[in-house]
Design a protein around this nucleic acid. Structure first.
Length: 561
RNA sequence: GGGGCGCUAGCUCAAUGGUUAGAGCUGCGGACUUUUAAUCCGUAGGUUCCGGGUUCGAGCCCCGGGCGCCCUACCA
């Protein structure tokens, strides 16, 4: 055995210290000697040695000089050597300023259907990442893929590039490298659109091998190494681009309707705007704890008080709660507010914004998911009443006045879990989620929620016990909510005092009393409609994917290495 | 939070407590001027997540830890 290939230390050669004494590793158990690389501050590398799990010493690189490449898997070591070889042969491994004349997509678009074995006479310079390589003795093929998923074949022949350049290609180019190729646009004998190279250059030598393109990466690797996922799985690119299309469309739709996009604080000193547990962090400059926002609502409303009239924001919210297929600790939220509108007006705008986004992203208002679910987003979206639909489903009249004991019993009969302190409205919503939500596939506005769960919403004009609030359900998921906003500062103060009392009693979702928000409201907050829509859930509805697939880099716990 | 399952080569996966942990692709060496996951011949590649333990012997069994997935609970 001899040399421990991981550490570069030969057992028995080093004499690690144990306390003040010494131990001869050879005499004890050489097979139990463990040495692992450690980093002690910038640039200081060493090896920590242990015997039978007992730390012995840290050997710095002065004492032991391991070959830095020795730890690497063979494939990575070879790629590093190829990088060196490029330089040795006068080639830049990471060339900049390449004479690129066009894109892969443009070449494809310009020559949609050429016959096989055709020369166009058109000279181009293109670059892309190699995803497949097929080398024969004197003719080499490479499939180059661009970021947009388009592909083009590069061909290198002995006749065109000469023996030296062809050998260099075969010796130094791997799958995963970015290469530049200049030459004529042709089709191969099999009809594949190609560039017949007069010249090739390395654009970026990849030191790590790409995953095998033909077998699916497992979900964890996809999420943790999204950059790799994006390279090998065009659908990953597609999702990222769909998000861009959706967000751009949302901005366009609202801008066209007179809304101003503004940016409100992510760091907030008071926790409010929704019922959710916040992340807490600390400002050194102000020497105080601050919250990552759970909602932009209270600031957008301040802006409307100030006369910005119609405002919106598309940005991140943070909620320190569960993470599952439909919840992410950070997620993208659209909120918009318009003075003088009510919850019916903003329901219409929400539907239009959503439909325009669906068209922009998918070209259709009928969306089919991988699991076969089909969503029909077209036309007007129906409205159902929360209490009426619940009563119908249960076969018993439920109203905001139904007493709590009855609701508790109904929940218990169905084994629906609920918080022991849950208010009656919350219990009604639980029952609704149990009975009605699973049936809501196509978009539906659920209207008129209990007042005790909606502290920021105006009371209903005619129905007692409910507020002018809707939840939008799409694909059995709550996708957005809209209100006729509460703008009466006296009522608002009462509601927020109740919230603050809940918070004092240990409810860490309850809002705190935001005096400055009330002060703004006391200056005259115009009646307004307001909406919050989960953008990630829009993506989920349009793609049928889980939330972690719609977010490019979702939060993950750090793994090994 | 509770329960179940998983972690093995660069990637995707095998492997009754019992030879030296295997396969495909990738890699490396060779052949090939029209390939499409090229093909053919040859070959290398391992801290079986980490740390303990049981055993003559552990990828497999036990204990502890890490990370993930599923179910469940909680959650504007």
């Amino acid at each position: 055995m001899g040399r421990d290939r991981k550490s570069g230390i030969e057992p028995g050669r080093g004499v690690p210290l144990v306390d003040q004494g010494r131990v001869d590793v050879e005499d004890h158990a050489p097979d139990r000697l463990r040495c692992r690389p450690v980093r002690r501050g910038p640039g200081v590398v060493g090896h920590a040695c242990s015997l039978r799990g007992i730390a012995l010493c840290t050997v710095t690189s002065d004492a032991v000089t391991p070959d830095p490449d020795e730890d690497l898997p063979e494939q990575m070591r070879i790629r590093r050597e190829k990088r060196e070889q490029l330089a040795a042969r006068g080639k830049e491994p990471y060339a900049i300023g390449l004479p690129i004349t066009t894109t892969i997509a443009a070449v494809r678009a310009a020559h949609p259907d050429l016959e096989p074995d055709v020369s166009t006479g058109e000279q181009v310079g293109i670059a892309g990442r190699i995803i497949f390589l097929r080398n024969t003795g004197k003719l080499c093929f490479a499939t180059l893929r661009a970021g947009d998923g388009t592909e083009l074949q590069a061909m290198l022949s002995l006749a065109k590039v000469g023996e030296e350049e062809l050998e260099a290609w075969k010796d130094l180019v791997d799958i995963g490298d970015h290469v530049f190729v200049a030459g004529e646009v042709i089709t191969s004998k099999r009809g594949e659109l190609s560039v017949m190279a007069d010249e090739w250059r390395m654009a970026a030598k990849a030191l790590r091998p790409l995953p095998v393109a033909h077998k699916a990466l497992n979900e964890e690797t996809r999420v943790r190494q999204r950059y790799v996922d994006l390279v090998v799985r065009p659908e990953a690119q597609q999702v990222a681009r769909t998000r861009v299309a959706v967000v751009a469309s949302v901005r366009r739709s609202l801008s066209e309707r007179g809304f101003l996009e503004i940016e409100t604080p992510m760091l907030q000193t008071i926790h409010g705007g929704a019922a959710a547990r916040p992340f807490v962090t600390h400002s050194n400059a102000f020497d105080m704890d601050v919250y990552l926002r759970i909602a932009p609502e209270l600031f957008l409303k301040r802006a409307v008080v100030g006369g910005l009239e119609r405002v919106f924001e598309v940005n991140r919210n943070f909620r320190n709660e569960g993470a599952d297929r439909t919840h992410s600790p950070e997620f993208t939220m659209l909120e918009f507010y318009a003075q003088y509108l009510d919850y019916q007006d903003v329901a219409r705008i929400t539907r239009e914004v959503y439909q325009e986004a669906a068209l922009a992203a998918t070209g259709s208002l009928s969306v089919e998911h991988p699991d076969g679910t089909v969503l029909d987003l077209s036309g007007d979206w129906p409205q159902i009443d929360l209490y009426e639909s619940l009563s119908t489903a249960i076969g018993e009249q439920i109203t905001p006045a139904t007493n709590r004991d009855r609701l508790v019993r109904l929940c218990e009969e169905r084994e629906i879990g609920f918080h022991p302190t849950a208010v009656p409205g919350k219990l009604a919503e639980e029952l609704f989620e149990f009975h009605v939500v699973p049936t809501l596939v196509d978009p539906v506005f659920v209207m008129d929620y209990p007042v005790d769960t909606s502290p920021l919403v105006r009371g209903h004009r005619t129905k007692p016990g409910v507020v002018e609030k809707w939840d939008l359900y799409i694909n059995r998921m709550e996708s957005g909510t809209g209100y006729s906003e509460l703008v009466d500062p006296v009522i608002q103060r009462d509601r927020l005092m109740e919230q603050a009392a809940l918070a004092d009693r240990g409810d860490d979702e309850a809002m705190h009393l935001d005096e400055d928000f009330l002060r703004a409201m006391e200056h005259g907050m115009p009646p307004m409609g307001g909406v919050g829509v989960g953008v990630d859930r829009m993506l989920m509805a349009l793609t049928g994917l889980g939330i972690r697939e719609t977010i490019l880099f979702p939060l993950v716990k750090p793994g090994q290495s």
